[in-house]
Computed example of a mutant assay.
Amino acid sequence: MEGSGLITLDAAAVRAGLDYPGCIGMVREAMKTLSAGVTLQLPRSIIDLGGGRLFGQMPGALAGDDLFGAKLVSVFPEPERPSIRRHRGLVVLFDPVDGRPVCVADAEEITHIRTAAATAVATDALARRDVRNLLLIGTGSQTRTHLKALPLVRDFQHILIWGRDTEKAAGLAADAARQGLPVSAVTDLPSAVADAEVICTLTGASQPVLLGEWLRPGVHVNLVGSSVPGPVEVDGELVRRCRYIVDSRANALVAAAEFLAARQAGLVDDQHIVAEIGEVLLGRVTGRRDDTDITAYKSLGHAVQDLAAAAHLYRRSLER
């Protein structure tokens, strides 16, 4: 709805207006312009409210004289499932001419969609062209969105879901299969990893669930679930073995938990970060050198990804 020149977009409006193919294209450009220095963002700042509760602020400005703003998000544990943390918040946009706030959009829904879109962009840039087997580790909302985004960039013939909650994994697989996707649930994670050519970690795990020794040559891994120092989904051996590519070098050096743990253990140093994904997309750095490389993409989330998605929704609202 619109009032006093301020457009507000709730979760339903975000879902209706932000399609996956369009969001993949927007995220790809946001990653390129950030690495090119055209768009601007500051490192995220996080206030620890205690009890596992966090409040994050992520400001940024889109390319040129475009919209600017910030993502404001709370990350709170769910009372009935303390290991699962839910992100809620707002993306706020300001007009670049007179500084008016012009749009407020639901950040949780934008985050769900654009995170999966960013994984799809990285997979398209880093995974082998002939991959057919996808493994999703986790059973939360990001698993559902990645099921929608990743088949848009590769023709997967087999999609496996593994989760600590086997019933939930089976339910997700059944839902996806009813929608025509070749999805099934698995309980033997090492065996699933051995067969996988693209893997996504989408968990709330605090300790590694995916080990580097399990990986086959040529696999691509997307590390998505952990976005703050501390909880790690994968071990240091995985970080050591892979060509480690990030969405933001500045953010990764302070917030990529598995990288920080591997660095503290003496397995890697800061130069182990090969590139930002935007540098790969711009052709400045080679992501995958050959079919035997193990590549990994660390997703922490760009503020400019959220701003680009919100700007797209805002302009579509103005057109209507």
Rank of each mutant, 00 (worst) to 15 (best):
L6H: 01
R289W: 07
R53S: 12
D66Y: 09
R249N: 14
Y314F: 13
P217W: 11
S206R: 08
F68H: 01
R243C: 00
G278I: 05
H112M: 09
A250E: 15
V131M: 04
Q264Y: 04
T39F: 00
H146C: 14
G230P: 08
H220P: 06
E2K: 13
L67T: 09
I7C: 12
S45H: 01
L211C: 09
K71W: 06
C23K: 03
G37A: 12
I7F: 09
G212D: 04
T201Y: 10
G52M: 05
I24P: 05
K168E: 06
A118L: 07
L135N: 03
T111K: 05
A127E: 08
R28L: 09
T8D: 00
E109A: 13
V246P: 14
D291N: 09
H312D: 11
Y20M: 15
P59Y: 08
L300A: 02
V38A: 14
R263P: 06
A261H: 11
A107K: 06
A176I: 10
V92A: 02
L181W: 05
Q57D: 11
V104K: 04
R320S: 05
I46L: 11
G5V: 13
A303G: 02
I199F: 06
R88E: 15
S74E: 14
H87W: 13
L202A: 12
D235S: 06
A256L: 15
N251Q: 15
D130I: 02
